[in-house]
């Protein structure tokens, strides 16, 4: 099975406090720690497991800047067979539709049985996977938490819906799936693994190589644009306890007593 996995570099939410930049045009990006979007890591692991069981290869692609090759190398260290960075001046400030269009061109360069994306990106909108599938005219299912290969022609998949219930579907290959967290346990990539791929040159493909019309992507093609970042004023918010750790604990105990939790 030939599998394409779309991965995105995002600020790691576990490592950063995200704050709005002074002029509100962006988030504060100095000192941000970046990593692979959490959902995409599950997608790559799923692809590797499918190939381990059924043969084939895993290719990862990312639309990003010149520093995004680091996440592609990380996925190579994890076990992906090949990776491409899709980068071009013309791609900058693409909206979701633009990113999906660039990825669609990359997908058409190969003949993939399965295309995986994450269900959503930390900084985005749960849109690219479904758009990509529609552009490629292949069937799509989102929020997938289980994949079984039925025969060479179709998969049996489970989508996770409300309440953790599973919706079981059959889907024809080739198809695209967006992967939900928890589908597997992504393997650990240690320093040694990363080091092994450190010298790999990740091929970069631009608009010309991909056959993307620059007018349809990037800022030029965007119908959806971010105007600014802000932090909304929300109601009163919590009463934030003050003082030493011991004092905060005692104040909290008093509040809980007031609620009858502690006698």
């Amino acid at each position: 099975m030939e599998i394409l996995v779309c991965v995105k570099k995002v600020p790691d939410p576990a490592e950063n406090e995200i704050v709005v930049s002074r002029d509100g045009s962006d988030i504060e990006r100095d000192d941000l720690v970046y990593s692979v979007n959490e959902w995409d890591n599950y997608a790559v692991e799923e692809a590797i497991q499918l190939v381990e069981e059924h043969g084939g290869s895993v290719t990862v692609v990312s639309v990003g800047d010149e520093e995004s090759d680091e996440i592609i190398r990380r996925e190579l260290a994890m076990g992906a067979d090949a990776g491409n960075l899709l980068d071009d001046e013309a791609f900058h400030y693409s909206d979701g539709r633009g990113v999906a269009a660039i990825l669609a061109h990359a997908a058409r360069r190969g003949s993939y049985d399965l295309i995986l994306t994450g269900a959503q990106a930390e900084d985005a909108a749960a849109q690219v996977g479904g758009m990509l599938a529609a552009m490629l005219d292949v069937p799509y299912a989102s929020l997938v938490v289980r994949v079984r290969v039925m025969d060479g022609k179709k998969l049996k998949i489970a989508r996770e819906i409300d309440g953790g219930n599973l919706e079981i579907n059959e889907i024809d290959l080739p198809c695209a799936l967006s992967i939900q967290t928890g589908i597997n346990e992504p393997r650990y990539v240690g320093i040694r693994g990363i080091r092994k791929t450190a010298s790999v040159q990740v091929p970069v493909l631009g608009a010309a190589q991909l056959g993307v019309d620059p007018a349809t992507v990037g800022e030029a093609g965007a119908k959806v644009r971010k105007l600014d970042y802000f932090v909304p004023e929300m109601g009163e918010g919590a009463e934030i306890l003050q003082g030493s750790r011991e004092e905060m604990a005692d104040q909290l105990i008093a509040r809980l007593k007031g609620r009858g939790v502690i006698q």
Binding site: P13, I18, V19, E122, D123, A124, R225, K226, L227
Partner: peptide
């Protein structure tokens, strides 16, 4: 208006 990063920040978005 949308949120990003699990609601840590919000953005205004214009849509044609």
């Amino acid at each position: 208006v949308r949120e990003e990063y699990g609601g840590q920040v919000s953005t205004h978005v214009s849509c044609d």
